[in-house]
Design a protein around this nucleic acid. Structure first.
Length: 152
DNA sequence: GCCAACGTTGGC
DNA sequence: GCCAACGTTGGC
């Protein structure tokens, strides 16, 4: 059992969008970074904990708790020539991009990036490191427990 | 909209 | 394999 932080732009999929989806589940499409892909494809297990993070928006921060609900499988959009996530080098026989499914556990208060930065216990969070751009990062179990405490 | 920090691409 | 050019991310 591992823990992850996954960024989503709320203009694309917000925590409220997730809550409104069938089974409160979304396929985590559109990841086009190899490190993030490898986390999903090689390490994520059903039941892993996910911090659902709103990025590139007015109030960036953790907006809810979710879980991995399906193991990685090929990202459907890499095969769609009309989509911005199309990848001409990917084929169904040899897919390049993968995604897991993520299911809402519960919406939480917004634990803002500002508050995260002001919390000394969380100084090691990957998301807070300088220059971090990765959309999926592992979360240390101790950090996860600490954040669960803040979100009670 | 700016721009720092990365990641990717492709010529050599 | 190097690295300049280019593209993207995402907070501010």
């Amino acid at each position: 059992m591992r823990y992850w932080l996954m960024k989503s732009e709320p203009s694309d999929v917000s925590i409220d969008d997730l809550a409104s989806f069938p089974n409160q589940t979304v396929d985590w499409y559109g990841v086009r970074n190899y490190q993030a892909r490898n986390f999903m494809r090689d390490q994520m297990q059903v039941g892993d904990g996910v911090l659902f993070y709103h990025s590139n928006c007015d109030e960036p921060g953790i907006a809810g708790i979710a879980r991995v609900s399906k193991l990685a499988y090929p990202d459907r959009l890499q095969f769609d020539p009309n989509h911005k996530y199309y990848d001409p080098k990917a084929t169904p026989e040899n897919p390049r991009w993968f995604n897991v499914d993520v299911q809402l556990v519960r919406k939480t208060r917004l634990l803002s990036l500002k508050e995260l930065r002001e919390t000394p216990e969380l100084a090691n969070l990957r998301i807070l490191q300088r220059g971090n751009r990765l959309s999926i990062t592992p979360v240390d179990p101790r950090d996860w427990e600490f954040i669960m405490g803040l979100l009670k």
